[in-house]
């Protein structure tokens, strides 16, 4: 009987602990536990970004409050961002260009203006790659061939049209004078599948994030024709940028963080300070290195401006791609 009573007591305690978590009302921000929404399943890119943030902010003692990562996958970020929209300033969410494209493609009502920009944190670059034995030695050769006969050249992309992998080539093509809606894309389930298809010679070229193909290029299993960065990337200096190939574009595949609508200036300033310090830490540098990301920090004000520019760019790209009329 004694055991029973203690079991009951303990569970009561748990219940009480569970209920008291949401208490708030203090003026000081943050006044309670913080939440970072990963709008994806555990193990995915957004999840890992959120967890890295949590880890660095906590380990470096930048934020004293508890930070929890909450997974809200679904709808290419839609579910998680809807959830964020109805939260208070203690919840933030990881984001990327999908925030813009979901809306531009007519798949979501949410726009970037529904949220408070906090920061842009890091970027990856896009790459165009061909098999090692491909007849195309340079990006210009590839573009020329595509221009002459767009249907014959199959380009692998994944996991869906309208993402940065797809749109980066759309931009390159339209800069070169090719109508991007003529490009012949085969859409694979994920970035890995695209690389398999290329290595097996099932597609003529792929457009994907650089990290998916960098090692393969170094091992000589395939050839990267161009990267979307502003200057050649460390480790693969032999690969030219699009600019060097005469196509005027720099295409970042950025990741950032944002908050719910209507955050106060103090709250935004809090994050500007914390994240500004965080990106200077060595631990964050390691996170960037491990993921093949590049630092791309912009504070809230710069991010707001950046988002506007990006929105206009993506609006054009989505239209050019032929995905919407």
């Amino acid at each position: 009987m004694k055991k029973l009573v203690s079991v009951a007591l303990i569970s009561l305690l748990f219940i009480m602990a569970g209920c008291s978590g949401s208490a708030s009302g203090n003026d000081e921000y943050p006044s309670g536990n913080l939440e970072i929404v990963a709008p994806a399943s555990p193990g995915g890119g957004w999840d890992l970004t959120a967890r890295s943030l949590e880890k660095v902010l906590t380990d470096e003692g930048l934020v004293e409050q508890n930070i929890n990562v909450v997974n809200k996958p679904g709808g290419g970020g839609e579910v998680g961002w809807k959830y964020l929209k109805q939260k208070d300033a203690h919840t933030l969410s990881v984001n990327s260009s999908l925030l813009l494209t979901n809306n531009l493609l007519g798949q979501s009502e949410l726009t970037y203006e529904d949220f408070t920009p906090i920061a842009t944190l890091a970027t990856e670059w896009q790459a165009l790659a061909v098999p090692a034995d491909s007849e195309y030695e340079t990006a210009s050769e590839f573009m020329e061939a595509t221009k002459n006969n767009p249907t014959d050249i199959k380009v692998g992309v994944g996991p869906g049209l309208g993402n940065d992998d797809h749109l980066s080539l759309v931009q390159a093509a339209s800069e070169y004078g090719i109508n991007p809606s003529d490009l012949n894309f085969l859409v694979y389930e994920g970035g890995g599948d695209v690389v398999t298809a290329l290595l097996g010679g099932h597609v003529d070229a792929v457009t994907t994030s650089l990290s998916e193909v960098k090692d393969q290029h170094q091992a000589g299993k395939l050839r990267i024709l161009a990267v979307s960065s502003d200057k050649p990337v460390e480790g693969i200096e032999d690969v030219p940028t699009w600019k060097q190939e005469g196509i005027d574009m720099v295409f970042p595949h950025w990741r950032g963080i944002m908050g719910p609508p209507d955050m106060t200036e103090e709250q935004i300033a809090y994050w500007d300070e914390k994240l500004g310090n965080m990106v200077e830490t060595e631990q964050w540098q390691t996170v960037l290195d491990n993921n093949d990301w590049e630092g791309f920090y912009k504070n809230s004000e710069e991010t707001e401006q950046f988002m506007k520019e990006q929105h206009d760019l993506y609006e054009t790209l989505v239209k050019d791609s032929g995905l919407v009329e």
Partner: peptide
């Protein structure tokens, strides 16, 4: 009811870190 609810809460939330 009480034991199993508590155990499953503990297992999932604390040990497995499911939010």
């Amino acid at each position: 009811t009480i034991c199993f609810s508590t155990i499953s809460w503990y297992a999932f939330s604390v040990l497995l870190g499911v939010s």
